[in-house]
Design a protein around this nucleic acid. Structure first.
Lengths: 282, 282
DNA sequence: TGAAAAGGTCTTGTGGTCGGACCTTTACAC
DNA sequence: GTGTAAAGGTCCGACCACAAGACCTTTTCA
């Protein structure tokens, strides 16, 4: 994203990011922010893409179909897609065989642009990443306690697919399948919803997850996935939780790496809050 | 609530419950449901009340003030308050020194009415309770890892206040203070938001939490609070998590008790999902 | 007995949303 | 090539939720 350093893109990015972070902090009686149909649809699409329902290069359903599926007007869908385009998540092609296509590469970003918008909110983003690590750890732990034979089978199948994947596309698909299998093993649809919600918020803030094109990350992921799978199969909740918690810091590190390429000083922000005043951002 | 078995109340209850449960399940591309300003405000008020920001017998701010605080029109605030009144959470008194007052007792419900609306959704409610137990366990665990001197002080102060409380009001206030201290000890505002969100959803589904008037529950809570506090102080994450997880089943049991008084058969629904097909509701 | 403080009612303007009609672009089939 | 199908692009009218404000009613207290 931000290949062209387009001003409109950056503004859109900042606006979306603001929504994500504002939405959850503060007291119960903070000002009410009503989401519009368009922003809600945009969230849903980003979630679907981040969850791998539509992989890079794939086409989303036509606007008219989406409008029907989501039960909103086509104008709302159009505005949402327009925003995704502005942020650089999708490409739009007209004509027959046209449509809305998920971009092959979300990275190659103008890191400087990201830095400017992300840095002021960095503490909040860290909190979000931290929470996600904790929740995914909890999910892995629960999965280890509740997994059944079918779950084990699904996780192992995904691991096999991952190991034998020849393209980034296959790796990505297998990665997603594995994580889905883990979430399902926790046997609570509400947990799945929570996991999805956190993925959405992380993706909205910085949509390079769970595949950021870096093969190295995915290769490291394979080892961790295998270890996580075995811990869950063995029913070792404690170990599974620890592995998952560590695994999801990959995201955090990927973001930090992009930012450090832009020369930002984020030293000390290791995603592990400590001390009296909350998350450290020295 | 439901003292008079009023039909409008029951319908309102069913409507609200439906919103809570529908809101989180299903795929990313399920139909979009835009919350109205009124329902959003209603959620906020219920959350604030459940969190103890306004204790039973206390008065909420005047409608005009709430409208300003929440940055919505007064009509939206009025509709929201009207719903709370319909569900029996607040009383409204007119004239000077009037206002919106939190009901002293939320219980004494017509259990039959609750049973009819809650039973079809029981599996989903169980999932919600289950998730809350897991998340609160995660929070306690994290608190045990991150707590500082100030946190320990706050938790102990709340425990002392609880032990020396003479009225249900004091007990309730201390109970809330303790849980807040635990959440704060986890040192991540996003965690607090998640905890609040789950409290809201549980409260919306069945608003008897965290104080349901049953002194027995609160007395049991004191012992568990003490144990939880010590585990957190000692930094024993595993134990703290287990205690908290168990502690929050109090809610579950309280609901089941109300329902069983109405003669419902909920045997087997112990809040601990197992088996291949998800949560058990035999 | 009047003023103050609250809830109750009504009106009006505005912006978001939907639904639909219609236009434009593109690729494929024949 | 030319037509047609399948997509996105544009526009408009009706509707509804909401905000803002003016004003009414009830109750209490000075």
């Amino acid at each position: 994203m931000f290949e062209r350093g387009n001003v409109a893109e950056i503004d859109e990015f900042a606006r979306v990011l603001g929504q994500v972070l504002d939405g959850q902090s503060g007291s119960a009686l903070r000002p009410v922010r009503l989401p519009t149909a368009a922003s809600e649809v945009a969230d849903r699409l980003i979630t679907a893409i981040a969850m791998g329902e539509y992989l890079p290069g794939e086409r989303l359903p036509p606007e008219r179909d989406l409008a029907q599926i989501l039960d909103v007007g086509r104008s709302s869908v159009r505005e949402a897609i327009g925003r995704l385009q502005a942020v650089g998540i999708v490409d739009i092609r007209r004509g027959r065989q046209g449509g809305t296509f998920v971009r092959e590469s979300w990275t190659g970003a103008s890191a400087e642009a990201v830095r400017r918008t992300l840095l002021p909110r960095w503490a909040e983003m860290e909190q979000l990443f931290d929470l996600r690590c904790l929740v995914e750890g909890m999910i892995a732990r629960t999965a280890a306690e509740r997994r059944g034979a079918g779950d084990i089978e699904r996780m192992r199948a995904a691991l096999d697919r991952f190991a034998s994947a020849r393209t980034a596309y296959d790796e990505h698909a297998a990665d997603i399948a594995f994580h889905q299998a883990v979430v399902e093993a926790a046997r609570n649809p509400q947990i799945a919803a929570l996991s999805r919600d956190l993925l959405t918020r992380v993706s909205l803030g910085f949509p390079i997850e769970p595949y950021d094109g870096a093969r190295a990350v995915l290769r490291r992921a394979l080892g961790e996935h295998t270890a996580l799978c075995e811990a869950i199969v063995a029913g070792e909740a404690e170990r599974a939780g620890a592995i998952a918690r560590g695994h999801f810091t990959i995201t955090n590190e990927a973001v930090r790496e992009v930012l450090s390429r832009a020369g930002s000083d984020l030293s000390g922000t290791d995603g592990t809050p400590g001390g009296e005043s909350g998350v450290r951002v020295d």
